[in-house]
Design a protein around this nucleic acid. Structure first.
Lengths: 248, 248
DNA sequence: ACAAAAGTGTTAAGATTACACCCATGG
DNA sequence: CCATGGGTGTAATCTTAACACTTTTGT
């Protein structure tokens, strides 16, 4: 290690802001207003400013891009990307943050000309060339990670509004995992998991059906036992005369 | 975002190299050979070199500090630390990597004067001032993360040599979690989990007891169902006349 | 009344726990 | 032969999966 010939990098944060919206997992993307990739789609993000730490930069960027104060949202550092040629402008290390949020309207982007908007993730993942830089890789990694976390944490609730029904929570799991879950068993499992959800006392309004109890997120962060993604609760499908699991 | 007034950082990788050794979770630390913190203890690591990506730097640093080729080891990026004042030398973003390895002798450090040596983690965690920089925080975060991962992944096997017995694997869990597990039930759970361990056909040598079957790590990475850290398999303790769980 | 969603009951199958007990080995 | 650790058997208990069925709402 020779003195003083250290390589220097710009450091950026990139935000993967996910929500469940219209029965699809969607992510916030911006249209780039400058080179490189002018006019292309990218994850929102930006460079660290003087004196800022990583978390502060992530919160600031989220506020700038979405107008949302991130106090109540789940924001968490995910991983860093540092390939020397990942950005044509030069050596840039990007620290990726994942934010999970309910399906809120985005109060239009701030000072930046580019506006953020929701996009279904499956379209972005299917074509790796749609997103600029290495953002396709970052998005894919982040979604894989989020999917894993749903099973043994209570994170799914951060996709829901402050008060929600068990069915809304089930829709989150079903959408993110792309499975169908058995409503009655799901209901029992969630309501019995200690500290996952707590009833508010109110009932949701209904459109053709019994009114559901409203819950808010409880204090628990870990879900035990886990909600298995591949084996249980998947609804059975009858083909011919015998039963088969939809996933097996 | 004003053009060209980007803040620039040096980028370092820090390695949290963990093993289970002498019935304790131990970590590789080095004695610092220069300022700052000259003579103090720190996690091994170093700055990125020209053209290197993050993973390459992590592998290079591990080889330099331990002489070990990291092909077979489990190395994984963990998280990044970027507080502006985390290093007195200036703005340095550190990308922390966790490596889990069996209890191998460290073939003495390479070109660097400082030698790496194993240290029990509990001593380092108990006194936050022993480690230089923010390495106490980094180590604590990494260990918490590793503990969580053991329950629903097959990572515990990466603490074992290429061929190992179920008891050795059990010792890993017991040591990292600080619990006692019921040997017979643990045996069944592990051997029945699909793809976790596969028998080599050989038997281990014994010192007073039946010779144990040797296994090597299987292809599975996720463990299902998970090994619960808090509730099950913990051995019961008899006090007075009735049973109590050691953890409950 | 009817459809549709919420939620409870029930039963068979499977997993977990605690512990008895047999097996193999070194001293 | 006996202490020690490896490993199987087993019964009580708990959890899960599947689905029938009741409750509550809007149309």
């Amino acid at each position: 290690m020779h003195r003083k010939d250290r390589f220097r990098y710009a450091v950026a944060v990139d935000m993967i802001v996910l929500t469940v919206r219209e029965r699809a997992l969607q992510v916030l993307v911006v249209e780039r207003a400058k080179q490189p990739f002018l006019g292309g789609l990218a994850l929102p993000g930006g460079f660290l400013e003087d004196g800022e730490n990583l978390d502060q930069a992530a919160h600031r960027e989220l506020a700038e891009e979405t107008g949302l104060d991130a106090e109540t949202l789940h924001i968490r550092q995910f991983r860093s990307y540092g390939d020397p040629d990942r950005d044509p402008r030069g050596p840039i290390v990007s620290v990726a943050y994942v934010a999970l949020m309910p399906d809120l309207p985005i109060p239009t982007a701030g000072g930046d000309a580019r506006a953020a908007h929701w996009t279904p993730t499956d379209k972005l993942i299917a074509d790796p060339s749609v997103l600029a830089f290495d953002h396709h890789t970052i998005l894919t990694d982040a979604i894989d990670n989020a999917r894993d976390l749903l099973s043994h944490t209570t994170l799914a609730a951060t996709f829901c509004p402050p008060e929600f029904t068990i069915s809304q929570l089930r829709e989150v799991y079903e959408t993110v995992w792309g499975v169908t879950l058995e409503p009655s068993n799901f209901h029992r499992k969630i309501t019995r998991a200690d500290g996952f959800v707590i009833p508010t006392g109110d009932k949701a309004s209904s459109d053709g059906g019994r009114r559901a109890t409203l819950y808010r997120a409880g204090p628990a962060t870990q879900l035990h036992p886990a909600l298995p993604r591949e084996t249980s609760l998947n609804t059975t499908v009858r083909l011919g005369g015998r039963q088969k699991h939809s996933i097996s």
